[in-house]
Amino acid sequence: MEAYIVAIAIVGAIYVLLTLGLTLQYGLTGLVNFGHVGFFAIGAYASAIVSMQGVPLVASFAFAALLAALAAWPIGLVALRLRDDYFAVVTLGFGETVRLAITSEKWLTNGVQGIPGIPRTFAGLGVGLPGALATLAAITLVCVAAALALRRITRSPFGRVIEAIRDNEEALKALGKDPARFKIQVLALGAALAGIAGAFYAHYITYLSPDQFIPLVTFYVWMAMIMGGVGRVSGAVVGALLLMLFLEGTRFLRDIAPDAISGVAMASLRFGAVGLALILFTLFRPQGLVGDYTRR
């Protein structure tokens, strides 16, 4: 039981990092990123590949963050020329392009066969609970550092500028500010957080395949942000943990469902329950759990 709880906590912390990155991009800046899973995949594969060549894990994590941030750079240049709705489609295409590239570039990623045997974090502690607890402690520290950094950003001049981009970009231009470089920086920073989350995921799961990086992952991150509270750092944390509660809690529907319901039908019912939760949040708590309770 303890191992299961720790495993869920690690995956939840990975989603916290992903949600913090999306909160910076959309919640604070208004950039609609539907391809967040692409940066997650880049970080996971980058760290896995270089670590299997003997690169220390600390360096491989840094490389994952750097490569994901660099991948966001051309996406940021595209953002300067497109409206929000078109940019959303471009990012969705980017996420799928990354997954297709992973599938086709067998010489680098081993294609659909995936990459097994990825080194574990804290491998010296073994594959049991001690190693998992050490991994949980490490990723928790990273989540706390990222949350504090984002909170500091929101209270800085940089944070006020990116919030102005979200609220009224034309007014910001009239004041002599150039939103272009701020958008690129925000996309790169959010992508770097997703890259670090991908690195943790790769070294915890120790196996990667393209099927792990479908658009549904991006949907889950958006769901976490909406449930927690868009534009709030605390909302990203609360929303990601609530998401894991829904995803794991619905697994136990099988225990109370009639035996006549097949496994396939139960999977559909589980996703339906998650979707219903999102609809209810959108209707009755559009500001999220930690949003402004004086508004509807």
Rank of each mutant, 00 (worst) to 15 (best):
E2D: 15
Y4M: 11
V6E: 00
I8S: 08
I10W: 08
V11R: 10
V16I: 15
N33W: 04
F34P: 03
F34V: 10
G35F: 03
F39V: 03
F40A: 00
A41W: 09
A48G: 07
L57E: 02
V58C: 02
A62M: 11
A64S: 11
A64E: 09
A64T: 05
V78L: 15
A79P: 10
L80H: 01
L80Q: 11
L82R: 08
F87D: 14
A88M: 06
G95P: 08
E96Y: 01
R99Q: 04
A101I: 11
I102S: 01
R120Q: 10
A123Q: 12
A145R: 09
R151K: 13
T154D: 09
T154E: 12
R155C: 02
E163V: 06
E163K: 15
E169K: 15
E170C: 10
L172Q: 06
P179W: 01
P179E: 07
I184Y: 03
I184D: 08
Q185M: 13
L193S: 07
D211S: 09
I214E: 13
V217F: 02
Y220V: 12
V230W: 08
V230Q: 14
G235T: 03
A236D: 15
L242F: 10
L242W: 05
M244R: 13
G249D: 05
T250K: 05
R251D: 09
R254A: 14
S268W: 11
F271S: 14
A273S: 14
V274Q: 12
Q287L: 06
V290D: 12
